[in-house]
Nucleic acid binder design. Sequence first.
DNA 1: AGATTGTCAATAACTGGTTATTTACCTAAG
DNA 2: CTTAGGTAAATAACCAGTTATTGACAATCT
Lengths: 196, 196
Amino acid sequence: MSRDAAATRRKILDAAVEEFSARGFAGARIDRISEVAAANKRMIYVYFGNKEGLFSAVLHHVIGTLIAEVPVTEDDLPGYAGRMFDHLLTHPEALRLSLWRQLERPAIGPDAADVYTSKVQAMAGQHGSAHPSGLPATDLLVLVQGMAASWLISPADLLAADGADPTSADRLAAHRAALVEAVRRVITPDSHPTAK
Amino acid sequence: MSRDAAATRRKILDAAVEEFSARGFAGARIDRISEVAAANKRMIYVYFGNKEGLFSAVLHHVIGTLIAEVPVTEDDLPGYAGRMFDHLLTHPEALRLSLWRQLERPAIGPDAADVYTSKVQAMAGQHGSAHPSGLPATDLLVLVQGMAASWLISPADLLAADGADPTSADRLAAHRAALVEAVRRVITPDSHPTAK
DNA sequence: AGATTGTCAATAACTGGTTATTTACCTAAG
DNA sequence: CTTAGGTAAATAACCAGTTATTGACAATCT
C-alpha cells in the first residue's frame, strides 16, 4: 500500500464534493466522505482541519472552477447565459453547492467581488451606472444569472407543465435557445417603448 | 394552564417554519422547535407524526400561501414578477423553504402541477405551444420566476458590485423596477430582430 | 367514564473530533 | 551496501455530546 499525500487529499476532496453537493453542510457525514474516499477519517482533519474547513475547500474548488471556465463576457450576455447554462448542466454540483452555500454558510467560500465589480463597471462604461440597454448593470448581471439557473432550480411539476420530459436533450436544447433569446431581448434597448 | 389543541398545533407549526427556514431539514432540530414553540416535544409527534411529517406540513403551509397570494397572471407577466418579488421580500421563508425543498426533499410538499399546466395552456392559447412573444410558454414562466428570485438568491458580493447597499429600500425598489422592465422586454414580440 | 391533551424521562443510534499507535519512505552514518 | 533513525502518512479504537423517537403516566375536558 503506497503513500501519496496529494492523491489522498484529492480523493477526500472529490468525495467531499459529492457528499456536500448531495446533502449540504448539515446533511453531509464525515464518515461517509472518508468511506467513499477510501481514506481514513483522521486524514480529513489532518488535511482540512474540520468539517467547515473541508466545506470551504470544496466551495473554493467548485465555484473557482465555475468562475474560471465561464467568464463574464459583458459584451455578450446572451452567450454568457448560454455558456453558464451549459456549465451548470454538466456540473450540477456547482449550482447545488452555490445554493447550499447561500442557505447555510453565506460567509464561506471564494469572494468574487473584484471580478463582479470590474465587469459591472465595464458594462456601465460611459453611461453612468446603466448598461446601454437602460437597465442598471448590476441588476442585469443578477437577472441573467437567475435566468441561466432558473430551469435547474425549478420544481419538476413546473418544468413538465407542457407535458415534455424536462430532462431530455431536446427539451434542454430548446430551453437553452429560449434562454439566450430572452437575454437578447432584455439587453436590447427598445426603439419604441410600449405602455403595457 | 388551559388546553388548546389548535393553538398548540399552531405554535409548533410557526416555530417549525422558522427553524426549517433557517436551517433546512437536516439542520433543523426538533428540540429547538419544541423550545421555541413552548410546547412539549412529544406533541410534535402526536400532531405531525415525525420530523418529515412536520417538514411536509410546513411546506404545504408556506408554499400554499405563496401560490394563493401570488396568482399567476398569465396576461400580465411583468406584474406577476413584481408581485412575486414583493412576496418573497416580505416572506423570506417562502423562498428559503422552496430552495431547501428542491435540494433536500424534492418529493415532499404541495403539487402545483394542475395550476401550472392550466396557466401554460392559457398562455399558449391558439399559438401552438408558444406565447405571443414567440417563446415557449413553460420556458417563459420558468424564466420569469427565476428572474423574480434572482436578487434574493445571489451572493452578497455580486449584489454589492456597484457599491450600493443591496438591502436598502431604495435599492430594492430600483431592482424591482428593473425586474419588471426586463420581463416586459422578454415578452414583447420584437418588431425587427437584430443580429447581435 | 372515555377520549383528548400534556409531561417526564429513557433509549438506541449517531456524530464530529481526538488519542495513541503503527506503517511506509527517505536519508545519512557506518 | 546496509542499516538506524527521523518523519510524513495512515489507521483503529474511542469519547463526549446530540438526535429523533417512544413508553408510561398524569391532567383536563365533554
